[in-house]
């Protein structure tokens, strides 16, 4: 996974870098606002998490995907996902420990305010999960090593697969082949990926 290979399309642009540098803190804050303020207005953990993830994606587009990935390298994103899931589960289990039902916020004994803060905490946890998963998904897709691997496998596997197929499969193959060459074009795209 060398720089030049996976980051070929990146062109440094002062305008984009400057704009993103100004905009990202606001996007990030807006994402947190949507998470926190989901209780009072439209929004919630899911939407806020997506907005927070998009702030990181903005950085990746402005400063290059590889440098951003290196900047985020380490257990940060993984930990965010895990802590989010664990927080949600423990808020539920904690209520059980306080002699309430699962996720019964009243059981914590803070009254109506406690319910609200419990909900806020759960929204934050959902936001952590969603933003973490989306950020990892983006960098996995963008790095693209897996595509080269699968494309090579496809090319090498195809002839041997056809040879090994019985008459049954061969019939279905020819059936696929008659589909106006759609399969053929997909195969060609896969080949050129490598």
């Amino acid at each position: 996974m060398s720089h030049a290979d996976s980051d070929q399309t990146y062109v440094e642009s002062t305008i984009i870098m400057t704009t993103v540098r100004v905009v990202v803190p606001f996007v990030f804050t807006f994402g947190l606002f949507v998470m926190f303020h989901g209780a009072e207005s439209a929004g919630g953990g899911f939407q806020g998490g997506v907005i927070v993830a998009s702030a990181v994606l903005l950085l990746a587009f402005a400063f290059g995907i590889e440098p951003t990935r290196e900047w985020l390298e380490g257990p940060l994103v993984k930990t965010t996902i895990a802590v989010g899931g664990a927080t949600f589960a423990f808020v539920g289990l904690g209520a059980l420990a306080m002699n309430g039902a699962f996720l019964e916020y009243e059981a914590y004994g803070f009254g109506s305010d406690g319910v609200k803060y419990g909900i806020e905490l759960v929204e934050l946890a959902i936001g952590a999960i969603v933003s973490g998963v989306l950020i990892s998904l983006f960098f996995s897709l963008a790095s693209g090593d897996f595509l080269v691997v699968s494309a090579n496998n496809g090319i090498e596997a195809e002839p041997s697969e056809n040879a090994a197929n019985g008459s049954d499969d061969a019939a279905s193959d020819s059936d696929n082949g008659s589909d106006d060459g759609v399969d053929a074009s997909v195969g060609a795209t896969g080949g050129e990926l490598a």
Binding site: A39, A42, G44, S112, I119
Partner: peptide
């Protein structure tokens, strides 16, 4: 019951 103004949340 919940002190939350957004019924959806």
């Amino acid at each position: 019951e919940t002190g939350v103004e957004n019924a959806v949340t």
